[in-house]
Design a protein around this nucleic acid. Structure first.
Lengths: 136, 136
DNA sequence: CATGGCACTTGCAAAATGCAATCTCTTTGT
DNA sequence: ACAAAGAGATTGCATTTTGCAAGTGCCATG
C-alpha cells in the first residue's frame, strides 16, 4: 500500500507501517530474513508459526511491491529463488530489536535469551552494526 | 493473546507482539493515547483512519485484557470513561518512535515533521523521557 | 524419461472486518 | 419530573481475508 494508493487511510507514520505490516504474518517473514538466515519459500514455510502457502505467496508479492525484499534466481539452481532484504528492509532492524526488547520484558515465557536485554541496552549501536554486517 | 493461550503460535518475541498488535487498528489506539492526548471512546472514533465502533470496542477490550490500557470513570462525569496507558503500554514508546523514524525516511508523503529525525537521532533518550513525563 | 524438489495456484469453508442501525445508561436543561 | 443529548457500546448483515488441503508447472538429477 503506497501513499499514492486509493486505499491509504492517512499520512501518519504509524499508519504507514500498518498498511505494510499490519497483519499476523508479514513481520515473521522479515524476522526469518533478518535473524534466521532464511532465504527461500520452503524455508519460510517451515517456521514454527506454520504460515500457509497462499498467504506466504501473497505476502512475498506485497513485500516485493513495497521494495522491502527482492527476488533473485539462485546461482547454483535455476529453479530456486532467493529472497533478500533491500536497504529499506534492513532499515527495519531497530524496530525489530525494540520489539524484541519489549517482548523480552513483558512475555514471561519468551524464548529471547536473558543476555539480549543487557547487550541491547549497553551497546545498541554495536549490535545493529554487527547484524547488518552479517546480512552482507 | 497471552503465552498461556491455546492460540499462541510460538514463543518468539516478534510473534508475541503480532499476537497483540498484529492487526490494522490496535496500534492506532496506542498512537492516539501516546501522542495525541486522546483518552475517550469518541475521541478514538474521530481519528483520520475512521475506525468503526464495533472494532474499537473489541480492541479496547483486548488491550485491557493484555494490561496495556486501563479504564477508569472520569472524575467530572460518571458516564465518561478514561482510557490510559499502563507502564507496559508506555514501554511501547521506543517501538513507536522507531516506527515513526522508519516511515519518515521511507514514506515520501509522511506528515512527520523534518525536525523529528534530527531530534530523534541526536537525543533519543531525552525525547523518550520528555514524552513519558507528559504522559504523567 | 521418471522422480522429486521448489514455487506457487486454486477451491472452498471459516473467521474477521466494515458499515449502519439500535440500545442503555448518565447527564443536562427546563 | 421529563425530554433531549452525549457516551459507550451491541447487533445484524454483507464483504473481505484467512486457513487448510489439494493440485499445477517448471527445472534438476539419476
Amino acid at each position: 500500500m503506497t501513499r499514492n494508493s486509493k486505499h491509504c487511510r492517512s499520512h501518519c507514520p504509524i499508519n504507514f507501517v500498518l498498511e505494510t505490516f499490519g497483519d499476523k504474518w508479514t513481520l515473521l517473514i522479515i524476522r526469518d530474513l533478518m535473524f534466521k538466515e532464511k532465504r527461500t519459500y520452503n524455508e519460510f514455510l517451515q517456521s514454527d508459526e506454520k504460515i500457509s502457502t497462499n498467504i506466504l505467496a501473497d505476502r512475498l508479492r506485497k513485500l516485493e511491491e513495497h521494495e522491502i525484499v527482492t527476488k533473485t534466481v539462485a546461482a547454483d539452481n535455476r529453479s530456486k529463488l532467493i529472497y533478500s532484504l533491500t536497504t529499506k528492509g534492513k532499515d527495519l532492524l531497530p524496530i525489530m530489536l525494540e520489539i524484541t526488547a519489549w517482548s523480552a520484558k513483558h512475555d514471561t515465557s519468551t524464548n529471547t535469551p536473558d543476555s539480549f536485554k543487557d547487550v541491547f541496552e549497553s551497546s545498541k549501536h554495536e549490535m545493529i552494526a554487527k547484524i547488518l554486517s552479517e546480512l552482507q
